[in-house]
Write a protein that binds this DNA or RNA. Structure first.
Lengths: 119, 119
DNA sequence: ATACGACTTAAACCATGGTTTAAGTCAACA
DNA sequence: TGTTGACTTAAACCATGGTTTAAGTCGTAT
């Protein structure tokens, strides 16, 4: 149950401190505690939330949607159905994007093959 | 060997005409012919080039890099080695991005499972 | 003749997702 | 005691990738 600073969170996930502050300002990291000097203190729960934000970002969810999801998390168990539906829909979107990339990769492989043979 | 209009190209790839004009302005679609009235005429070769641009875009190559690639295509066979290396590097970047998305999808699946069981 | 739809342009506008800057606070160490 | 390093803020700034607007030109169907 250690608290960590923004510098440590930044190092842990390898993202700039400025990005973490930006996410907090956008409402993706609510309820972050502060020490007497006003510095952010990330609890394990906050770190887990940041990890979720990064997971959703890695799968290209827009910040506005991540905020909606986080708002639902904060709101509590009454929003579980909404969150479940959102995650299911998001999963389908991610699978579709992976399919598109995988399909497009074939076109790139064709070029690689052609250029390799033309060398 | 049919020429097609921007409207037909737009319909064929399901992208706005404005995007096609934007790509041309950015140098991704060079040497496009015009009719007497100044309207764009897309030859089969141009359509193939547009398809390549879309393929690279689908795999998230930035416009500046797509332009570099197209410039090399226009330059001719002397740039084949450069193009080959670029496509190889790009392929690795795409595979890395797909891996990250696939990995992050696991975190989403965990939420789906948890929310499903908590209903 | 005219009106419509498809096209043209340059320039302005927009959303997204940060990053950078400037000025300041604080704790700890020399 | 003073200076360094890690933090704070609000606001300005930036890149990317388009989209929209306004004003105009054609070709064709009525």
């Amino acid at each position: 149950m250690q608290y960590c600073t923004i510098g440590e969170a930044s190092a842990k996930f390898n993202i700039p401190e400025s990005t973490i502050r930006y996410y907090e300002k956008k409402g993706l990291l609510p309820l972050i505690e502060r020490d007497e000097a006003g510095r952010r203190l990330f609890s394990e729960a906050q770190i887990a939330l940041l990890e979720t934000v990064i997971c959703l970002k890695n799968t290209h969810m827009p910040i506005s949607s991540i905020k909606q999801y986080i708002d639902w998390v904060v709101e509590g168990d009454s929003t579980i159905d909404l969150r479940l539906e959102m995650m299911k829909n998001h999963k389908q979107a991610v699978l579709a994007e992976i399919s598109l990339m995988t399909e497009s990769l074939k076109g790139i492989d064709v070029k690689i093959t052609r250029y390799t043979n033309r060398k």
